[in-house]
Amino acid sequence: MLFKTLISAALLSVATLVPAQALPAINQALTGTASQSSTYGGQPAASQADHAIDGNTSGVWSTNNPSNSLNHTGFEMNAWWEVDLGAMIAIDDIVIWNRTDCCVNRLNNFSVFLDGALIGAYNQQNGPTPSWSLNNVGQTGQVVRVQLNDRDYLHLAEVQVFGTVAAVPAPGALGLMGLGLMGLGLVARRRRP
């Protein structure tokens, strides 16, 4: 009887997850940590990876502005930029803002990855646009990467990752589940001849 009670309590506890949909979707990238494959050598202070997660979607890059709001890599094959969101996020949408003052064609043939898995590829035959949206992603992950599929500079005005912290079991549920599994092991031991 104790065994059935423990298993029932553990199973009930597992069902009490906090649903991610109950929380509002916010731009999780704002609190993430950005990195990139290289930094443009002409103005490294104005080219940092974290400029693409500063909340500013302005697409104007300037070497004369140390508080520039775009990242900028060197000229290389498969240049990339990524953000580690710091936790597993149930991702709804990803919005990528392009540079707009010049060179918009550089962000024309690129891919988007979530934890190393391809979730979107773009090769705009009609030319680049100021922003792209990857809607209804419906996946959970921690690292979002934007990567060129050819050789060029990569610069992004902003990358927004909208979603919520993924559901995790309440601490009590984990304890009860562990207790139930331990009870299962004890019952199995008693039944051995």
Rank of each mutant, 00 (worst) to 15 (best):
L30Q: 07
T63E: 12
I53K: 03
G41T: 09
E76W: 06
S38Q: 05
N27T: 07
S58Q: 11
G74R: 03
T39D: 11
A49F: 11
N65Y: 13
W80T: 04
G59D: 15
Q48A: 14
L30S: 12
A20R: 00
I26L: 10
W80C: 06
Q21H: 09
A45N: 13
G41Y: 10
G74T: 09
S37T: 10
V18R: 03
T33C: 00
S37V: 07
L30R: 04
L17C: 09
G32A: 11
L17R: 00
T33M: 07
A45M: 10
N78H: 13
Q28N: 04
G42V: 06
N27Q: 06
P24V: 03
S38M: 04
D50H: 11
M77P: 02
S35E: 14
A34K: 04
T33R: 07
V60W: 11
N56S: 14
A45S: 12
H51W: 05
G74C: 02
W61G: 12
N56F: 14
S35L: 03
E76R: 01
P66F: 05
L70W: 00
A34R: 04
N64P: 02
H51G: 08
P24M: 05
S67K: 02
Y40R: 00
V18C: 08
L70M: 12
P66Q: 07
H51M: 02
P19M: 03
T57E: 15
N65F: 10
Y40K: 00
L70V: 05
T31A: 14
A46K: 02
G55R: 04
S62T: 11
A25D: 15
P44L: 06
A46P: 06
I53S: 14
A20Q: 07
A20H: 08
S58H: 07
Q28G: 00
G41H: 08
L30N: 06
W80M: 04
A52K: 06
T39E: 13
S35C: 09
G74F: 01
T63L: 06
A46C: 13
Y40L: 01
A34N: 06
A46R: 03
E76S: 08
T57P: 15
T39S: 10
T73P: 12
Q36T: 08
H72T: 01
G32E: 12
D50R: 03
M77W: 05
L17W: 09
Q43H: 10
G74I: 00
L23F: 13
D54I: 04
L23G: 12
T57S: 15
V60S: 14
V60P: 08
S38T: 13
A25Y: 10
N68M: 04
T33Y: 08
G59K: 02
N65Q: 10
Q28I: 00
H72G: 02
W61F: 15
G74L: 00
N56R: 05
N78P: 05
A22I: 01
G32W: 10
